[in-house]
Each structure stands twice: as structure tokens, then as C-alpha cells.
Amino acid sequence: MTSLADRQAELVAALTAGAAVPPGFDARLVEAARVALLRKRAGEVARQWPELAHGLGAGWVRQFAAWAATRPTRGSLRDGWDLARDLAARRELPPAAGAELATREAVLVYDGERAPRPRRWPAVRGAAGSVVVQVAGRVRVLRRG
């Protein structure tokens, strides 16, 4: 017999990381809750990454949900950052989101694992045709994609 904590962990994994629905739960209701959580998560990421959400237009929630379905959240800033990097690697990042990603990359250091932290040194970053320079905390977008 599994403990309550184990069953709760299984349910959370089903809701947030695409794991199988644990025995004893209504799969239809778990799926409805999972979809609602993905929509909520997409809204939170859109607030942190407005240009990314706007650039993907009407397909934003669908595309974000497809990307996030098997990834537990790491916070809306990091979720958006990871998605933007993934889209950039596939050359599918919208141009306006390129400036947004390049700005974040110039201002903060984020290795994909640890929480972002302020960048100490000058930086030049580019994404989707945009180029951003950061020196002494001042940020300039030199070119928008």
C-alpha cells in the first residue's frame, strides 16, 4: 500500500508533468484539471514574456501547452525563457520575441538550471535577428528582427 504522500506526488506528476493518472482517480477529471493548469501557466508566462505570447498570436496557449505538457513548472520567467530558447534553436522564434529574449540574455545570466541572476559584465546578445547590448546596467536594442 502506498502512502498518502506517494499518491499525492503521483497526482501532481499527472497534473504537471504528463505522468500516468494514478489508480483510483477519474482520468477525465484529471485531464480537465491538467488542461486548466496549463492554460493558467500559459497566462502567467505571457505576463512575463508579452512579446513572445503576442508573437505567437492565437496559437500561444496551444503552442505553450504542447511544449509544457511534460515539463513541470520552474516559474513563469524560466518557463518562458526555456520556451523562447527552444523556439530560437528551431528558428521559430517570432522577431519581436527575439528582442525580448536577447534583452533578458544581456541583463541576466541563466544557464537553464539555476535561477537567473544579474549579469555583472557587459554583454552583447542576439536572437531572431535582434541585437542587444548591456553595459553598466544600461540596455540598448541595436537592431530589432
Rank of each mutant, 00 (worst) to 15 (best):
R120M: 07
V12D: 04
R125G: 04
R91M: 10
R62Y: 00
D6Y: 03
P22K: 05
A58E: 15
R7Q: 01
P118K: 01
W60M: 10
T2I: 12
V45D: 04
R41I: 01
G126M: 05
F25E: 14
V124C: 10
A33N: 09
L93A: 08
A123M: 05
L52A: 07
R62T: 14
A9L: 08
A96Q: 12
V107M: 10
R117A: 14
P118M: 02
H54K: 13
V109M: 01
T103H: 07
V124Y: 00
Q8D: 04
A123S: 13
A5L: 13
G59E: 15
A84C: 10
T103C: 11
L93W: 04
R91Y: 08
L38Y: 08
S3P: 05
A9S: 13
W67I: 07
R28T: 14
G59L: 04
E105D: 15
A115N: 10
T103M: 06
D26E: 14
E113T: 13
P122Q: 05
G145A: 11
A46K: 11
R34T: 11
E105I: 06
R138P: 00
V35M: 05
G75P: 07
R117C: 11
H54I: 04
L52G: 05
R140E: 14
L4F: 11
P116M: 03
D26I: 05
H54Q: 14
A97V: 12
G129M: 11
V141R: 13
T2M: 10
R119H: 06
R7A: 02
A17C: 04
A36S: 13
T2F: 06
R85W: 09
E92S: 06
A136M: 09
D79P: 09
V45I: 05
R144K: 10
P23R: 12
Q48I: 09
V133A: 13
T103D: 08
R125S: 13
V30E: 11
R104W: 14
F64Q: 04
R41K: 08
E10N: 02
E31N: 12
A84M: 10
W49L: 06
L142C: 10
R119K: 09
L29P: 00
R74V: 15
E44C: 11
A20T: 13
L101D: 02
A89C: 02
Q48A: 15
L29V: 07
A27Q: 13
S130N: 02
G112N: 07
A96C: 04
V45L: 07
A88S: 13
E113S: 06
R144I: 04
G18V: 01
Q48D: 12
V132R: 08
A89R: 11
V141P: 07
V109K: 00
A13K: 02
P122N: 06
F25Y: 14
V35R: 14
A128G: 06
A97G: 08
V109D: 03
A106M: 03
V139W: 03
A97H: 06
F25G: 00
V30C: 06
A127Q: 02
A99H: 00
V12S: 06
A32M: 12
